[in-house]
């Protein structure tokens, strides 16, 4: 079998396997949520349904198991795959911990930074990032310091987008597809294969998380997806493209932190960013309310939850296009 055929088979197998595993795990996750009473109220619906809030567990287990099996079957096991599994697993554990019991808002970013350390210690990075306009730069000392910081930023950014039914899942599918495409075009097989495993699980999860959601991803899901994205970007040396592809998520996270004057729990907010009336979202006009992307979207006219998510996906797609333009036109 030639190289191309083997690569196509690897990509197809990992996509299908992670999708099947996630699909099979959904009922188990639901019964686990019932056992440990992990349900969240969907505050944007007038009937306020209770929804299992650890749906992301199926994505975590689905992707990890799929990567373990396929990397063994296709001889892909190396330090980068192991670092990916360990780092993303640690981020998922931090998320699960927060789903059970709210973490201190300062401790959470520290723990997420620690989750990035296996990437550093297992040498799963290439400290010569390709920067726009200037080309490759040597960052042998700075790069290992930047990895944990990038882990915190990206995982929290993806987490901050989990505000509406499907908003985190669909925008992450757009970002993951972009990183997959870039890696495929550069023939970076390993990062492309990790991307497609994540895409398989996310595609299945999107079905359950779309409006009206039957499952929430929870912190376990959103932090895991964020950790997967940054790990893949570091392994594939497409860090700049990822940061641009998730610019809406980073913008959202950054303005929340800035307008709240630091890391604070969302439960301690004096003013909510949006109001909900009859299923329609409208922005809070108060200057004390945190600046979020959903608040910006709803500042001119009220939107239904579904419409807001569609707009977020449009903005993410534009961001993905900018990431592709940057990668192929501005990076030497």
């Amino acid at each position: 079998m030639n190289d191309n055929m083997s690569t196509i088979l690897l990509l197809l197998t990992s996509f299908i396997l992670s999708a099947i595993l996630s699909y099979v795990l959904m009922p188990l996750v639901k019964s686990l949520a019932r056992k440990v009473n992990l349900f969240g109220i969907d505050v944007h619906k007038s009937w306020r349904p209770l929804v299992p809030k650890i749906g992301g567990l199926s994505v975590f287990i689905g992707v990890t198991t799929s990567v373990m099996i396929t990397s063994f079957l296709f001889n892909m096991v190396d330090n980068r795959v192991l670092a990916f599994i360990i780092s993303t697993g640690l981020a998922a554990i931090v998320g699960l911990w927060e789903d059970f019991r709210e973490l201190n808002p300062i401790l959470k970013p520290v723990l997420l930074a620690l989750a990035g350390l296996p990437i550093v210690f297992m040498g799963a990075y290439y400290p010569y990032p390709n920067l726009p306009f200037v080309g490759k730069r040597m960052l042998t000392i700075l790069y290992p310091i930047l990895v944990p910081i990038a882990f915190t930023i990206v995982t929290n950014a993806i987490n901050s987008m989990d505000v509406l039914n499907g908003s985190m899942t669909f925008t992450s599918i757009v970002a993951t597809s972009t990183i997959f495409l870039i890696n495929l075009m550069k023939y970076n097989v390993l990062p492309a294969y990790l991307c497609i495993s994540l895409l398989g699980s996310l595609a299945v999860f999107a079905y359950y998380n779309k409006y009206p959601a039957k499952f929430f991803p929870g912190n376990v899901g959103s932090l895991y997806v964020g950790a997967c994205l940054i790990s893949i970007a570091i392994i594939g040396s497409v860090e700049i493209a990822l940061l641009i592809a998730i610019l809406p998520q980073i913008t959202n996270e950054f303005h929340i932190i800035y307008s709240m004057r630091g890391f604070r729990s969302a439960k301690n907010l004096l003013e909510r960013p949006v109001f909900v009336e009859n299923g329609m979202l409208s922005a809070n006009p108060s200057k004390k309310a945190p600046l979020t992307l959903v608040r910006m979207l709803t500042s001119r006219c009220s939107l239904s939850e579904n419409e807001a998510v569609k707009m977020l996906v449009i903005i993410s797609t534009i961001s993905a296009a900018l990431a592709l333009i940057t990668e192929f036109f501005f990076i030497k």
Binding site: G40, D42, D162, N165, P217, V274, V276, L281
Partner: peptide, 10 residues
């Protein structure tokens, strides 16, 4: 007007 909710579904 409207009832106060938040933009966090989980």
């Amino acid at each position: 007007g409207g009832s106060k909710g938040n933009d966090s579904s989980s």
